[in-house]
């Protein structure tokens, strides 16, 4: 298992390298950040001076080399617009996004698994059909549209929850989080719900599919024929069977939750990494874009590793594969 983990880490390092190169080339191709950020009063000499000062006049490979040298020394460069190290900016925003994504995943799993089970156990009943119909709503309307609707209904019309922003935070081991205080939690509810909807729909459908398949497996049929209580059949035979797709999806989708928090964070003015990313893309703030991607890739690698380890723990067949 250790060598498996080590090999994965080595592969991941290579991934990071390729990734940084791609981003570098991509941002280089779009344009010069100085053009967007430069003071409108600036003349050509000033534009040239600033471009040179940032090293943006060098050929791409030289810029990349300078970046690599810095990166190996632990310096990913400073944000063009904030003047502070890019990694600081990202880490400052990470807790806000993480708690948003975690709560969203929690909502999706705690609602999605039971609803999916019900829909799978009773596919022909009205409740099963209603759940399925409802789940379709979850992914057919664009996130930004649903987000605004949530704000309109729960904040503007009913006045129950705040419209936007993060609200007060409490320090937990030195990390500012908002879910510990009531006011902070109130700010968290709407964006987390908004972010959760799509994953919720996906989970319901996958759990339903898994349940239906499991119910038709011979061993489940046999167990039912033997007269085992429905609840016990579900717990012993069905649940383990649907766990693997659920973990895969939960793992993969958690990563995409973080990446796609962009829209929710934009609509709810949530100061997370996603909003930072979209702002940085808009300004071609390359150090921040690269640092963001490095952080997300690292998160993904960790999540994938955790998913694979869980697989191995749950399914002996995959364990054999992992050790190969």
């Amino acid at each position: 298992m250790l060598s498996f983990t080590l090999r994965r880490l080595a592969q991941s390092a290579a991934t990071l390298l390729v990734m940084s190169l791609l981003v570098f080339a991509g941002v280089y191709a779009i344009g010069n950040p100085v053009d967007i950020l430069v003071n409108p009063q600036a003349d050509q000499a000033e534009i040239a001076r600033v471009t040179a000062q940032l090293g943006l006049d060098l050929p791409l490979w030289q810029q990349y080399w300078i970046f690599l040298r810095g990166a190996f020394g632990g310096d990913l460069g400073s944000s063009f617009v904030a003047g502070v190290p890019a990694i600081t900016l990202i880490l400052e925003r990470l807790p806000a996004t993480l708690e948003l994504a975690l709560l969203a995943m929690l909502i999706a799993v705690t609602l999605g698994v039971p609803l999916g089970l019900i829909a799978g156990l009773k596919p022909e009943s009205w409740i099963g059909r209603a759940i399925m119909a409802g789940s379709i709503l979850g992914f057919s309307l664009p996130t930004f549209w649903v987000g605004l609707m949530l704000i309109l209904v729960f904040s503007v019309q009913l006045g129950w929850l705040p419209t936007t922003g993060r609200g007060p935070t409490t320090d937990l081991f030195g990390i500012p989080v908002s879910f510990l205080g009531w006011e902070g939690l109130r700010h968290l509810i709407l964006p987390a719900t908004n972010l959760a909807l799509f994953k919720l729909a996906l989970l319901i459908r996958l759990v339903r599919a898994g349940t239906r398949e499991a119910m038709l497996q011979d061993y489940v049929r046999y167990a039912r024929a033997k007269g085992l209580a429905g609840r016990r059949v579900v717990r012993v035979h069905v649940l383990p069977n649907i766990l693997i797709p659920v973990i895969t999806v939960a793992g993969l989708e958690f990563g995409s939750l973080i990446a796609f928090a962009v829209v929710t964070e934009t609509v709810f003015a949530w100061p997370g990494m996603g909003k930072l990313l979209i702002d940085s893309i808009g300004l071609l703030d390359r150090p921040v874009i690269v640092a963001y991607l490095l952080v997300t890739v690292c998160l993904f690698i960790l999540i994938n590793l955790a998913v694979d380890l869980l697989y191995a723990a749950l399914d002996p067949r995959v364990r054999a594969e992992g050790a190969r």
Partner: peptide, 11 residues
């Protein structure tokens, strides 16, 4: 695949 999945579609 990991590389691709961690690359935000927006970018």
């Amino acid at each position: 695949v990991d590389l691709q999945l961690s690359f935000p579609s927006i970018l």
